[in-house]
Nucleic acid binder design. Structure first.
Lengths: 365, 365
DNA sequence: CTGAAAGCGCTTACAG
DNA sequence: CTGAAAGCGCTTACAG
């Protein structure tokens, strides 16, 4: 729909004004093939010839082979797309998203590829998803609903890698054993003697609706990450009340914890589905005079290093987030190498429960 | 150098396996031109013909025109690059960077373009800067040194827009009046009665070296943003001691403030060059029993909404950061529309001093 | 080590 | 409203 307009100052048979490889070759007195080889370094060219070509390029102010033309010819654009389901402002307030993106960029950059950042906001037409050049795409986010993006990209036959998403046909996956590790942290609480535990979850629908988790909402949700972590907690505490946050934010953790403590004043521990939510829960507890972990134990998830919070060590599940990003990038790059795709396998990462100073036995009541 | 390898499963005269527009046209019984028009919607095609083409596409599982070919033909890739000088992990811990990126993405997306994210880390070969397709580039960061990126991109004749950077030939600029607004916040302190003020600055060199700002370091630095804000503060307090932080982080603000308070125990106010640094300064003050603003006034810069810090309102300079991002995107897009480039002007934004509850008269001594 | 030729898949004047 | 033709700028077998 909205697509770069071409105005009219562009090709139509006549030159565009820009220097081309052919012109450089002519000036250097060699063929276009040789000039091409001189630039790419991927063929046998005498040093002297190469020098002549590069000199000609300098004289003509030639900036190197046009990536657009190369990309058409080679069938590769050198671009890997990363698709987030939220707008940048929301997605990147989460340090986990940033750390993963960093891992992706690392691996992609080392392979000579660049990263195209696309958002799959529900309110916008597919945009870059439909039109942008890309050799593969990595999808991530809280995964409430990536179907539209998957449909568009699948239609284009772009190899797809999902991070923390529901398994889907024709899509490689990078996941971690969240359910198990959350269950492990729940058992820690259980062994400490806790029996009444509250849960703060990540968003469970696209609208990011806040509020108590009802049976209806649970059934309606398809938010992979949130549901997995919830299942882990409820494996140990089947009846634990849960409050849904509208994002992985400290402020959201505070809001949810306040409501949880209001509605269930008897809980002795809170399991938060992210470290930011956990930090918010701690702040909420402290603002009403509850000490952590004396009066309330708090468990997080992520193992995020949060700037400005050096005072205490959160009990949390540390996930290898940058490594997950790198794995996703490797899968995406791998899908290009093998046309056969057969060798590529989903990657399942293991996280580790780190016991900090925010958990303790419940106060004798 | 490192450039997507072509392996060998690619074009050489024979088909690549993927369906092409020509095949779709043939099946629909129309010419390639008509099929193209049916997809782009930019020409007169009867509804019935269009339907026939789209049906043929569906039957052949054709995902739409190949962006690589379109881009060669039209001379546009539909991609705007955003170049940060740091690695993603570092650049995106700054909420200002994220907010600006959000503004950029907004405007770029609305115009049907996508955003390529490149980093210009000193330790890596130019990477995407040299090879990636792009129609224009936006450069930002703390601007200690963007010269290498500018050189590479300039060589490629890519239109350039700099945000908060030193003016440079052939590059459009988006800046704000930081020097003036920082001076204004300094005058606020002065009018409250402060005479001994400490400054915490953003990084002033590529290595992001911490420590007291000496005359030598000041001379050696070319960090546009940091130097401008420093000049504003010293316009009012010429002799104010300054401590250089290694990033815009709460933890860095704490470190710098501690050293400042150690070395200059008589200061009654701290001017920080970012809100995160200011928050760190407040924490440092409180950890040694100084109350803010009773014992120490603290002024920030940015007007960032920092998650988890709802308790107080920082006195700070609020800059229209997302608007700056949008302006940068508009300039980049504008550079494509006008080949003539003549209409495009630098954009200078105005920030506003917001007086919060972290400033007060100095305690009578 | 170098050159001539073909063609990647599309879009756009142009002519009807 | 539709078709035939040209060509965007490059890279890559292939032949020498």
């Amino acid at each position: 729909m909205t697509r770069p307009a071409n105005d009219d100052a562009t090709p139509s048979g006549t030159a565009t004004g820009r220097t081309t490889l052919a012109q450089v070759a002519k000036r250097a007195g060699v063929s276009a093939s040789t000039a091409s080889l001189a630039f790419s370094g991927s063929g046998p060219v005498s040093d002297e010839t190469r020098e002549r070509v590069l000199a000609a390029a300098r004289e003509l102010d030639y900036g190197g082979p046009d990536p657009r033309a190369r990309s058409l010819r080679t069938g590769r654009s050198g671009i890997i797309a990363v698709v987030m389901e939220e707008r940048i402002r929301d997605g990147f307030t989460d340090p986990m998203a940033i750390a993963m993106l960093d891992g992706i960029a690392d691996e992609i950059g080392a392979a000579g590829y660049s990263m195209l950042l696309l958002t799959d906001s529900p309110d916008r037409e597919a945009g870059g998803l439909r039109d942008a050049p890309m050799d593969a795409a990595i999808l991530f986010g809280c995964s409430t609903d990536l179907d539209p993006a998957v449909a568009v990209l699948g239609q284009r036959h772009v190899p797809l890698v999902g991070v923390e998403t529901t398994p889907r046909d024709g899509m490689r996956l990078v996941n971690s054993d969240d359910r198990d590790t959350v269950a492990e942290s729940a058992r820690l609480l259980s062994e400490l003697g806790h029996t009444r535990v509250g849960i703060i979850t990540l968003p469970l629908d696209r609208a990011r609706t806040r509020g108590p988790l009802t049976a209806d909402r649970l059934t309606a949700s398809d938010a992979y990450t949130g549901l997995e972590r919830l299942a882990g907690a409820r494996a140990v505490f089947p009846d634990a009340p849960a409050m849904v946050a509208s994002g992985s934010l400290i402020d959201e953790g505070m809001l949810a914890a306040r409501r949880l403590l209001d509605q269930h004043p008897d809980i002795t521990a809170i399991m938060a589905q992210s470290d930011l939510l956990a930090i918010g829960a701690i702040q909420a507890a402290e603002e009403r005079g509850l000490s952590v972990p004396g009066d309330l134990s708090v468990v997080g998830f992520d193992g995020a290093r949060v700037d400005g919070l050096t005072t205490r060590t959160l009990t949390t599940v540390v996930q290898p987030i940058a490594e997950k990003g790198r794995a996703a990038a490797r899968l995406a790059l791998g899908a290009l190498a093998d046309a056969s795709d057969g060798e590529l396998r989903d990657e399942l990462f293991t996280s580790i429960l780190r016991v900090g100073d925010t958990t303790a036995p419940p106060r004798a009541s």
